[in-house]
Design a protein around this nucleic acid. Sequence first.
DNA 1: ACACCCGATTTGAACGTTCATACTGTGGTG
DNA 2: CACCACAGTATGAACGTTCAAATCGGGTGT
Lengths: 346, 346
Amino acid sequence: MVRKKPTLVSLAEAVGVSRQTVSNVLNNPERVKAATRDRVLQAIEESGYRPSAAARQLRTRRSMDLGMRLRPAAGGISGSVLDRLLHALTEAAQDSGYRLTLYSADDDGEEIARIEDLLHAADLDGFVLTGVHAGDPRVEWLQEHGVPFACFGRPRGGPDPFAVPYPWVDVDGAAGTAAATRFLRDNGHAAVGFVGWTADAAAGKERRDGWLRAMSGSLSAGELAELQAAAEDTVEGGADAARLLLERGAEALVCASDSLALGAFAYLRSAVPGRNPAVVGFDDTPVAEAIGLSSLSPPIIRAARQIIDVLSHRLSGGPEGQGPRRHLLLEPSLVVRTPRDLGRTT
Amino acid sequence: MVRKKPTLVSLAEAVGVSRQTVSNVLNNPERVKAATRDRVLQAIEESGYRPSAAARQLRTRRSMDLGMRLRPAAGGISGSVLDRLLHALTEAAQDSGYRLTLYSADDDGEEIARIEDLLHAADLDGFVLTGVHAGDPRVEWLQEHGVPFACFGRPRGGPDPFAVPYPWVDVDGAAGTAAATRFLRDNGHAAVGFVGWTADAAAGKERRDGWLRAMSGSLSAGELAELQAAAEDTVEGGADAARLLLERGAEALVCASDSLALGAFAYLRSAVPGRNPAVVGFDDTPVAEAIGLSSLSPPIIRAARQIIDVLSHRLSGGPEGQGPRRHLLLEPSLVVRTPRDLGRTT
DNA sequence: ACACCCGATTTGAACGTTCATACTGTGGTG
DNA sequence: CACCACAGTATGAACGTTCAAATCGGGTGT
């Protein structure tokens, strides 16, 4: 059976020093003589001592605990990005000695209430925000109350995101679509089309710009205008857009999402039976892997690492000027797959 | 600006009572006179007081915090079930006043180490286990140390799951496939085939049994044997199996997973161009919705509710005999969709 | 009138840690 | 030789809560 939990005091008298010395071994090792330190460390090891988070938190008002909202209806084919972020954040936080606490809220206002709750009651040290937009009330509230936070996603729809004082990481959509476009062109497709969204202007425009950048030079502006289409972010939308662009002479397609790409993929399959569809999606969702669709994979692990690093630096009172960059744009990597042919399998 | 955080003491002297009275208003309201209670409650309201979780935890050795492991490679098309469970658990826990803390671990042994950590350091009150199997070392360890826990998923591969002393919730696979089979038969398909897994015997067998139950009576055992196939849990596997069963006369298919169903769906699409494929998947993953595939939706929210209820009952020292059932099998519900036709959209 | 009980409230102590400060001994300095 | 600096260690207090036990004012019963 397990003996009674060891504490600083019980450990101290076992070793024959004072509790503060043991505490120092853990928190300020340089203050204690090497010989003493070793004896204490060994005793800690043997007893399996773990400092009580509650006691420490009560004294220091820090919990080593970060909060993140779990969006309720994260469903949909691309909801998975946030889920993957969550996984990566959990690991990154754990590696840095932090814990991750989840909460749910239906809207921004409710989230603020939850944050206030957790801040007062549980002394959370910082928060990870997703889906921030210009004039976001959560950002305002957190800044006003001096609460550390970091965002996944730039604040869209406002002034230059690089000018805001708070940290964020984001995926460089333009770099992604540009890389995908170059890849398709290098593989012999001169006329690469782009399928974007009708809604969500900012992110969609960025992804289109990447394609545009990689295409310009070889085609006229008029020709390029013919090679792009906008649709709702659904499979049907993608199929419709693919049909349209195919008629206009597109030979390959870069899509703003995997949903669109899935539709385009399926359409090309049935419309041009002989050939494998040259389609690239965005976000590299599980479906893409399942059906063998090439897609742009966001560097979620890097992003999570960055979020934790920047929060951890801020929380340990690191120097203002130094530390990880405040704003970070990460390029997605193109995952190339060969489409699975399901119709005629042997 | 925010005033200094109120505490029991500051509140108490503001109202003119002792700290213990305020504490009692919160924890044992019946002990304090109605008039006093009202005065205190109002003061709490006005001041926005929140009891300090750390102080409470230090004193009571309870954290109101539950732990759950986030599996590292939860990817794949059906990883989403656990993610959806996580969402539902977050909400259910929050509703019951608990918080959810995540941790990651690469295997069961590492998970035990993490649990021990969190137990000592953070006083977690209980854990949610996923993917338990017969002779699971985590279960053994938790039981031995008297730590409350609840499982999502029955312990497979051992004796009767209903005989184990610890609580679990699970999805009734047989009920699901039986319902799907009946649905297809009611819609005029006499020969409904089943596509199962080669691996993962227990869960796969159960899903097949449901189909068998719903089919038996109308067909001979020999005919039924012809109408089932086993494949790897991939899209190609599903397509291959669909082709095979189609040749053997199947008119509709019930599949053990959405991956298989997706493959079968795609195959039927291209093999029998005129008709909409009559295929039902399992788990109702986002892909199913995207492409219009009917699927069996596991009652995740109910399951989460149950897990929290059973843990919460145990933790608040509820009577052994009463409270929520220890073992709960929940029937998935069939989500019927009309397939999207992407080839010939107008 | 006295002892007694009971509901309502208060007080002292404890949970395990860290901060601020106080103490010790040793070696160097005026 | 008295003094000081300093590294190393020890002590008191505090963080905010809850448990256990003490106190306070009325009634009641005899």
